[in-house]
Design a protein around this nucleic acid. Structure first.
Lengths: 247, 247
DNA sequence: CGTTCTCTTGAATCAATTCAAGGCTGGTGG
DNA sequence: CCACCAGCCTTGAATTGATTCAAGAGAACG
């Protein structure tokens, strides 16, 4: 107990609420089963009925669905610390798949253990609930993004979101971070064709808003990119209010 | 206590889990403040920090956001029994507004009362959490709908969703129901322009898939409409598994 | 060192938007 | 009771944004 996976999980939880030492102990005592997956692997599929949820310890993953015509739409990008299928704790059947965008380390946690933790520690239950609500907030923003923004805006907005979330977990240095998404995947995030996504990317580059080569992404001027992407980080709910759970 | 609002709420909760008599009593004892709003009224705004959540007792509402360019995108349609801003229980600032699509009766419930209820009745907490997860499942499906389906499919899919949800609460009779959405609102749900939405509607009509006149909507052949809209109701999670919370 | 992704480009096509205008309906006031 | 207004629906035509198709260049991998 007390592995790297526990550390990542605790760090994520404590971004939302300062835990008591009993709470920290309870989380640390959680059995976590480690596993690895390769880039492109499907971790869980739509229709699965898992009895565990997994913590993304390292690497990138995405939540996706496939239309009847066979087109893929990605609806969430996951970064280390995320619990991409936590919803399965209270909804038996998965309504979307999760696949690995890069090689990933995963930590599987049994639902029975999570339920027990929630019963004994209602504040942890509240944080986990909150995490799923933030996921929902991101989905809403994506509906707006895909439904009402231009191709360039969509891409800029997506880059902003990933950038902010990476920054939060310390994965951005001097405006540079590593984002292992291919243009095919970016297209599937934004509801565009690959060709058009490529042209949108070139437009961002031409305007000096991003430098994206391979996996290395540089944002020379955050303000400009945020403006181009109609991006306002409020929907990410990065900070809980001081008096959450106290009123 | 024991108003129409309580009945609607209880009926919704019991669609997910059979409540014990203590649980029913606890819900019935919940103070609910009734209110009315007119068609078009904004009930809560993006950025609000409410200390209550509201139950939609009668009428239709929608969750929406507005892009920087001023375009509206609707990301959820709400029917009686829904708790459209339940998320505010654990996220202080609302990331989307809710507005009334028809005249509505609302029942406001204080967060403090809901939190107390959750602490004393963990199974009710689980149901409420589940409700927010189902909302999230719907958002995901909407990302797919808006991102990867054709105009006609999007509209057909939307009609299917509303139809199924109305049917579930007994608001469909012989394939006919009342849906007070205008074409402007349908366009805002599907990420289309009004003109194009109108043409998509005509296509559905021409193919005998829907009869939509004013607020009266008839679905002559459910199978055909579902097929045209690439619709599979799984994502609505209408029925919990038999052993939810028991494993 | 070939194979397979990934990225890029040009050209033709198509889906959806915009612009503009007219018709319908239900409600309101003269 | 009728005239008028506002909101909603419908239509046509021009335009634009995005897709598709096709093909080549570059990078990554065993």
């Amino acid at each position: 107990m007390g592995s790297k996976a526990h550390d990542i999980l605790l760090r994520n939880l404590e971004l939302h609420l300062q835990l008591t030492s009993e709470e920290v102990d309870a989380v640390t005592a959680l059995p976590i089963q480690l596993a690895q997956v390769e880039r492109g692997d499907v971790i869980v599929r739509e229709g699965d009925k898992p009895e565990t949820s997994f913590l993304l310890v390292t690497g990138f993953a995405c939540t996706f669905k496939v239309s009847g015509a066979g087109d893929r739409q990605i609806m969430a990008v996951h970064v280390p610390g995320d619990l991409p299928d936590l919803q399965s704790l209270h909804i038996e059947t998965l309504d979307a798949g999760v696949s690995a965008i890069s090689a990933c380390e995963l930590g599987y946690i049994r639902h029975t253990d999570l339920r027990q933790l929630c019963l004994e520690h209602p504040r942890i239950a509240a944080i986990l609930w909150r995490l799923t609500l933030i996921d929902a907030a991101i989905f809403k923003e994506w509906v707006l993004n895909v439904g009402r923004r231009s191709a360039t805006q969509r891409l800029a907005h997506l880059i902003c979101e990933i950038y902010v979330r990476l920054d939060r977990i310390g994965l951005v240095e001097q405006g540079i971070c590593s984002i292992p998404l291919t243009q095919v995947e970016l297209a599937d995030c934004t509801g565009l064709s690959v060709v058009h996504l490529n042209r949108s990317m070139q437009e961002l580059r031409a305007n000096g808003l991003v430098r994206w080569h391979g996996k290395t992404v540089e944002v020379p001027n955050w303000q400009n990119l945020a403006k181009a992407g109609d991006f306002d980080a409020t929907f990410l709910h990065l900070k809980p209010s001081a008096n959450w759970l106290w009123t």
